[in-house]
């Protein structure tokens, strides 16, 4: 029970963090069809911006400013880079973002060096929220979850309840028609890309203090955010939320399960036979925690390619 509760809490918070990073990506992906490989670079930029600003201004303002700066970076990328190659097709857009992610990572190394920075949670926020089974639960973890939830609500309401949201959704669904109706679709694209980057930047600014801010943080999240987006359904915010939670929880729980296929077969009385096969059979679930998301992604793609909550496909 103890393990279950703690894993549930941890998995949920980790899932919420994943959502923060992938929310922007799913919007961009759904709308522009761009597999944006530079997306986690904005996550990293957010962390480094916040780290730098924190030396001059206090914690919260620096987080907000870092978010804005990351968003600005996103706008620049869309306006001056992506838009230029848009006419050459998606593959070129994708490869362009790839090149940008190289450049951003190397520039970070140039300016901040190869090592983790000393970006930490401020002392005023470094205390435990409550005790659970004798273990402290850090308040910052709850804070991250809260920010993510708040962000989800805000973006969701923005998209579904406002006029801007309607235009954005129509631009996602039928860009040409929206343009024909007199909406400035390139501006919408730029806006969405900027907001998406800003969301990733916010995630980085908040999570960078809790985890580590280092030049590899973009790489570490690199592929998993695509899993979230695909599993949730391209362009679906709710889907991204659901998928993030599933992946957060599954990786949190898998860690504690030391069972393998051998044990499954042993349950049916064929344990020794399975043991003899070795290889795949002996792999423990706990050592597969990194594999599970990709297996999930594969199954979704084959069974329900539009994703859990996606519409298009």
């Amino acid at each position: 029970m103890e393990y279950f509760t703690i894993s549930l809490l941890n998995g949920t918070v980790y899932g919420l963090l994943l959502f923060m990073v992938s929310a922007g990506l799913t919007l961009i992906f759904g709308m522009m069809g761009v597999l944006n490989f530079a997306h986690t670079s904005f996550y990293m930029l957010g962390a480094y911006f916040a780290y730098t600003l924190q030396k001059y201004i206090s914690f919260w303002p620096s987080i907000i400013l870092a978010t804005v700066l990351a968003g600005g970076g996103g706008i620049v990328v869309e306006r001056y880079f992506l838009r230029r190659v848009h006419r050459y097709g998606h593959a070129h857009e994708l490869l362009l973002t790839f090149g940008l992610s190289y450049i951003i990572a190397e520039l970070i190394k140039l300016f901040y060096g190869n090592y983790p920075t000393n970006y930490r949670v401020p002392e005023s926020l470094h205390f435990s929220a409550f005790q659970i089974f004798g273990t402290d639960y850090p308040v910052y973890r709850l804070l991250m979850g809260g920010i993510s939830l708040g962000m989800f609500l805000l973006v969701y309401l923005l998209l579904s309840r406002t006029r801007v949201g309607i235009v954005v959704r129509s631009a996602i669904y039928r860009p040409r028609m929206a343009e024909a109706l007199g909406h400035n679709v390139p501006l919408v694209f730029m806006g969405v890309f900027g907001v998406g980057a800003a969301l990733a930047g916010l995630a980085g600014a908040v999570a960078g203090a809790f985890y580590t801010t280092n030049p590899n943080m973009a790489l570490e999240l690199g592929v998993i955010v695509f899993v979230v987006v695909v599993v949730g359904g391209l362009g679906s915010l709710e889907g991204a939320m659901l998928a993030s939670l599933i992946i957060g929880l599954s990786s949190s729980f898998a860690v504690g399960i030391d069972l393998s296929l051998v044990d499954l077969f042993a349950f049916f009385g064929a344990g020794e036979w399975a043991q003899g096969l070795g290889g795949l059979m002996e792999l423990k679930v706990s050592s597969l925690s990194a594999t599970i998301p990709f297996a999930l992604m594969l199954i979704i793609l084959l069974v329900r390619p539009s994703g859990l909550l996606g519409e298009k496909g």
Partner: peptide, 8 residues
């Protein structure tokens, strides 16, 4: 990214 399950 998240070692809390291991800490658990």
């Amino acid at each position: 990214q998240d070692f809390s399950p291991y800490v658990a």
